[in-house]
Design a protein around this nucleic acid. Sequence first.
DNA 1: CTTGCTTTTGACACCGGTGTCTTTTAAGCC
DNA 2: GGCTTAAAAGACACCGGTGTCAAAAGCAAG
Lengths: 361, 361
Amino acid sequence: MLRIGQGLRRKADIMAGQTGGKQPTINDVAALAGVSKKTVSRVINRSEFISEKTRKAVQQAIETLGFVPNPQARALAFRRNFLIALLHDNPNAQTVLGFQQGVLDAIKDSDLALLVRPVDRGSDRMLDDVRTFLEKQRPIGAMLLPPISENDELAALCESLGVRYVRVGSAPLDDPQHCVSSNDHDVVKEAVRKLVDLGHRRIGFVRGPEGFRSAAEREKGFHEALAEAGLSLADDHYAPGNYRYTAGIEAGEKLLALAEPPTAIFCSNDEMAAGVMSVAHSKGVAVPGRLSIIGFDDSPTATHIWPALSTVRWPIRQMGVRAAQLLVPDFLGSGAKAIDADPAALTSTFVERQSVAPPGR
Amino acid sequence: MLRIGQGLRRKADIMAGQTGGKQPTINDVAALAGVSKKTVSRVINRSEFISEKTRKAVQQAIETLGFVPNPQARALAFRRNFLIALLHDNPNAQTVLGFQQGVLDAIKDSDLALLVRPVDRGSDRMLDDVRTFLEKQRPIGAMLLPPISENDELAALCESLGVRYVRVGSAPLDDPQHCVSSNDHDVVKEAVRKLVDLGHRRIGFVRGPEGFRSAAEREKGFHEALAEAGLSLADDHYAPGNYRYTAGIEAGEKLLALAEPPTAIFCSNDEMAAGVMSVAHSKGVAVPGRLSIIGFDDSPTATHIWPALSTVRWPIRQMGVRAAQLLVPDFLGSGAKAIDADPAALTSTFVERQSVAPPGR
DNA sequence: CTTGCTTTTGACACCGGTGTCTTTTAAGCC
DNA sequence: GGCTTAAAAGACACCGGTGTCAAAAGCAAG
């Protein structure tokens, strides 16, 4: 009797202490469950060396108190923070945010949180900056978005700091366990073949920036598709670019000023395609009547311009999910695994809209 | 002599221990500088009760070892994490990322990091989710982006958890110290006045979604501008919307099908304006010859469509900077303060491009 | 009922900082 | 120089968890 009375009183005290403003700690739980804090810790971390009976009791106490382990304390003891870092240096908001969304979808039910960190590709302090960041934040893992994902030193840095990493790219950059990649090369071939099948013979190309793997992959796919059709790219049908709208303008002005302009232009991304399309409009060149245009990304721009742009849908959000699954499979709840059981969800696909037609004549 | 010898040897040991894989700790610094760890802590935290001499010595030791305080340990001791949380539920990628960039610009040289957290406005568990998130991560402060910034309960929650907060909106939502806002109302008036001055009398309006403060502000500005010009909005010149492209399409189809369609349409954001413009193109209505269109946001879409859209530039990135300055002025380096000495940088401005002209006739 | 082994549990130090309070040092004054 | 007082530095507990290793409990066999 007395014993029970004491027990009850103690429980009341604990509850009172807890409601007294602050969060319950592992000590409160331990006291309430009548076990040591280490045992509570074992329950939290799903240790296998624990009897079903005590596990139940501890669970019960945890729920009664509404106890949530303090991530800062765990981070200190584990010498690792329950965070994922997203490192990016990407001109394209849509890409970054789409990917970010995917990652967040995946980690929604986990204990992880997402830390976003832009890095300055140009700076020669870049590596040091990232090292400092990783040493300070000690995330479980880091995700590298293109173009910095192509930097091997960065990957090596993560490796050496014991930070897991995943590199996102347009083609495999690393071993499969560190890499989420799309099939830019193949799908560009498919898109260009489409143009050829419609009867286009003079096809222009607007390239992405030097130093971007994606730009190289897309160019390769383009050339191969032409080659397979027995065609080749005329020198004056090529325009350099940098994935920006203004580059599209310049490219459009160059290509459409030719005595014999291309009847179709493949642009390495949607923004540049939008630029080319503007030039066509302002020169009175009908799209798709006299000029077909294809972009890449399926960004919002693709559907916001008129006529709607045929483009390549890059499953960026899905890639975010996949990247998280690859990076921290052991932290994700079962929900996250269900998110993409479908491997096909990761393939880029050609989306036909209104900017493509047979060559006018 | 002996004493010095010992001193040197100890220093060597410390260095060796440090290079032996892990980061130097405050203890290493203390040992090297020959002071207590608390004194080192004082130097780190710029305590005023410390002599210049020891400060120098400690600084020296910190630099020699390359010591960086462990944020997890500090977070535990301070009971606060050196993080800023960005809470958003925003359909517009550009807005979120632009703001995020601004925040990152501002905190670049500080010890803070940015945690991004989407919240589900619809869910009735939303408040609990956010509470759990804030209790777990214990950020210094939180930033609320529209539309969730309009939720007073959320602000109250932050307050009660001792988390600083800043609300971002289209109009003041709270006391100035908790609020970064743009002047949507005024600038919409300016834009509409511009249309009136050009001679437009039949001006259509496409509204933003119900429940968004921004939508209401923009509508108010629109009506006032008309009223001041002695005009009013005809019932059939009004179209509802939700800030999405498709809503623009619907609005365009409705307004341009009228027997006497408007000669100008003000759209509450750029995406809807792009939708209206598509409809105009496909119906053969020349823009701006027969129809002037104005958008809002100055999103990339505004310049990617043709003709380029006259719109309102909302200094979202600057607002991110400002929000950070408001939220954590005490954590930002001097660099951040310089970022926007210019208060005018925060005013929205009307940007004239090619989608506006006098009414055709 | 021991003994010997495996499975559970707990005590205690530790992760790397900060808060509080005490002691030491330096400065000011007579 | 001695005394008072303020400034500087330190000792030690503590933040809330985890790792290690020893102790206790459970169980089968002797």
